[in-house]
Amino acid sequence: MAEASGVVTVEKVRGRSTVTRCFFRYPLKLILPKKVGASQVDAVWIYALSYGGGIVSGDKISCKISIGDQCTASVTTQASTKVYKSVGSKFSEQILEARIGEEAFLALIPDPVTCFSTAKYDQKQSFRIVSSSNLVVVDWITSGRYQSGERWDFTSYKSTNCVYLDNDRPVFIDSSKAEAHTKSNKGRSKENDVCTATPPYYFFWSICKIGNSTRPYCSRSCSFMQYIWPPGNGFSDPCRGNKHRGCVCILANPSFFLGDVSGCSTLLPIWIVNIRNNVICCMCD
């Protein structure tokens, strides 16, 4: 990766997780609030922002994060990541490289990506863990500015998440891509490719949880999905048994408003996999 837009290092200082290095430059801004949770909770919160409230066409944001042994950190945002309209062939790009040490915990829980009309966005996130690391990654996208009449109206969207064990052994690789073909490309409109292919969904989630410390979250998620999944549809609890190292869930929501999710009737699990002995195992269709 070229010179990073941001660098964050979290290490143990006097027995507590502490940011020992923080660097950022335009177009990235990092905020480290001191009072987020209870004082007895040993965790660092990192807020990633962009100047102007979004990512401009041609912007390339890269960030490196290192979580030291037995440290806990959460990386999030203050609002949805807005990707503005593209100019010519320019892409907006975000790259994240994270290393998680022994018995360390990293939670990447940003607000969703919202691509404006004609936006072109490419996101790459890689995580390097050891056998005792703990990781939660939430990667999600909305259909766009729905209230402005934009629904899956972007030109290109791609998101890739890779988790490697001991630097080079792939544990989890997930790549999502949505691309609209214009009339000059195979004679089809954007709506025929993206919008028509994704009804009636307004959100897509990808959730990856790895590590023994994530077990309570895995069990909670699976209990929730067993509740909303219609009986007899082949759902199998990926957290059953005591050997699991985590789980991966792909979810879709046909309602635009997040508040509707609380009703447990609109969230649709597409597939769920289990991680046993650091190997991905598919649990249901």
Score class of each variant (00 low, 15 high):
Ile67Asn: 02
Met225Val: 10
Phe257Gln: 07
Val113Gly: 03
Ser39Phe: 06
Cys284Pro: 00
Gln226Ser: 15
Phe224Gly: 04
Thr196Arg: 12
Lys243Ile: 02
Ser223Asn: 10
Glu3Asp: 07
Trp152Ala: 05
Leu108Lys: 02
Glu191Ala: 14
Lys209Glu: 10
Gly144Glu: 08
Glu103Asn: 12
Gly53Leu: 01
Lys12Val: 03
Trp152Arg: 05
Thr118His: 09
Pro230Cys: 13
Thr72Gly: 01
Thr196Gly: 13
Trp140Ser: 11
Phe172His: 09
Gln226Asp: 11
Asn192Asp: 11
Tyr157Gly: 08
Ser236Leu: 05
Ser184Glu: 12
Gly6Pro: 04
Arg245Gly: 09
Ala4Cys: 06
Tyr201Lys: 05
Ala104Gln: 08
Tyr26Lys: 14
Arg151Gly: 02
Glu150Trp: 14
Leu135Thr: 12
Gly263Ala: 13
Leu135Glu: 05
Lys34Asp: 02
Pro216Arg: 07
Thr142Asp: 09
Tyr164Val: 06
Ile129Asn: 11
Thr266Ala: 13
Arg245Pro: 00
Val8Lys: 03
Ser5Gly: 14
Pro231Ala: 07
Cys22Ile: 13
Asp237Ile: 10
Gly58Glu: 13
Phe203Cys: 03
Leu251Lys: 04
Ile31Ser: 02
Ile228Arg: 13
Ile67Pro: 05
Tyr227Asp: 11
Tyr164Thr: 11
Arg99Lys: 10
His181Val: 00
Ser148Ala: 15
Val36His: 08
Asp69Ala: 09
Asp139Trp: 00
Phe91Asn: 09
Thr182Asn: 13
Cys63Phe: 15
Gln125Leu: 13
Val36Lys: 06
Leu32Lys: 09
Ala180Ser: 15
Leu30Trp: 13
Gly54Asn: 00
Cys222Phe: 11
Tyr227Phe: 10
Cys208Trp: 00
Ile207Trp: 01
Val248Asp: 01
Ala119Asn: 09
Ala48Val: 15
Ser80Pro: 14
Thr266Ile: 10
Gly211Cys: 02
Ser176Phe: 14
Trp271Lys: 05
Val273Glu: 08
Lys34Pro: 00
Val44Phe: 05
Asp139Leu: 00
Ile272Glu: 06
Leu267Trp: 03
Ile173Pro: 06
Gly144Arg: 06
Ile65Tyr: 14
Lys120Ile: 04
Asn161Met: 11
Asn161Gln: 12
Val19His: 06
Ser148Thr: 10
Asn161Cys: 15
Lys12Asp: 01
Glu97Pro: 05
Val261Pro: 04
Ala180Pro: 12
Gly53Asp: 07
Ser159Val: 10
Asn274Met: 12
Gly259Lys: 09
Arg145Pro: 08
Lys29His: 14
Gly88Val: 04
Met1Asp: 11
Leu251His: 04
